[in-house]
Design a protein around this nucleic acid. Structure first.
Lengths: 138, 138
DNA sequence: GATCTTATTGCAAGGCCTTGCAGTAGCGCG
DNA sequence: CGCGCTACTGCAAGGCCTTGCAATAAGATC
């Protein structure tokens, strides 16, 4: 980890270590605010701007990716292996991960049309889930 | 317009009138901040919270819809007829509207799978456009 | 381990948006 | 036309995130 930074001429600092350790204990997603709060548990002196800047760096290194939730707030995905988007029901507020089949349909549609490579993990698709849609029409 | 408000027990105020007039002069999209700035041209005393609250109301009435741009910032779409999502290239920053064919692919994929009704206008799909993708691999 | 270079940090200010609350002013009614 | 009800507005505070800048401290070198 440390070497990964040094290899790019970057520095290994206690602040970055804190963020990385917290992320290691996290699976799935965190919002920026949540992450800061968790960092403060380890180091009460954690500063927001440092955390956000560290996240930018980690994203460049490919260690996290960020997307936006239904309300547009930033959300960070830990672990590159689990690239996935989200589905959000505006009525009931439930969230799901977008399943592989649907993901492929989306990615494929854009790739075929103009070679656009979709960053799925960046998306939150908002709408109305099956249950709520049915309830609304009855 | 006025009656539309009264019909719902809502009031017709100068502030709302300003927002609606500005929106009428707008086609396509506006961010909240832009809208406020334009409102201030007509009424220098325009207050942000009032504008945002008015937008909420207009959204309930179906007169505008909001989505989130690539950076998660709010964006309002005027005119229900033009429901469409956006495509954004993270490399070159270009934006396009999502074309009908691709939109159908997305909407269809979710509807078929679980009856989820996608609100397309809410989406900004981020990724890398054909040109940038090609440039990157060369 | 002293020194130097410069990547990072901390801080302050600012932008965008939301929320609670008290005061204001639409508008329906007599 | 005046009155009352209550839907709005304005304001202030706050949350989330970004940015510029000066001070700090990694880490490479001798």
């Amino acid at each position: 980890m440390r070497d990964r930074f040094h290899g790019r001429g970057m520095r290994w600092t206690p602040q970055r270590r804190t963020v990385i350790e917290v992320l290691a204990d996290t699976d799935g997603h965190v919002t920026g605010a949540e992450l800061i709060e968790r960092c403060r548990v380890r180091d009460p002196h954690t500063i927001p701007s440092t955390v956000y800047r560290t996240l930018d760096v980690l994203e460049q290194l490919g260690l996290v990716r960020h997307g936006h939730g239904a309300d547009g707030r930033e959300e960070f995905h830990v672990g590159a292996e689990s690239e996935h988007g989200h589905l959000y029901c505006a009525d009931c507020g439930t969230r799901w991960e977008i399943r592989a089949g649907q993901a492929d349909a989306i990615v494929g549609a854009f790739r075929r049309a103009d070679g656009f490579e979709v960053d799925l993990s960046h998306i939150t698709v908002v709408g109305r889930c099956g249950a709520c849609a049915e309830r609304a029409t009855r």
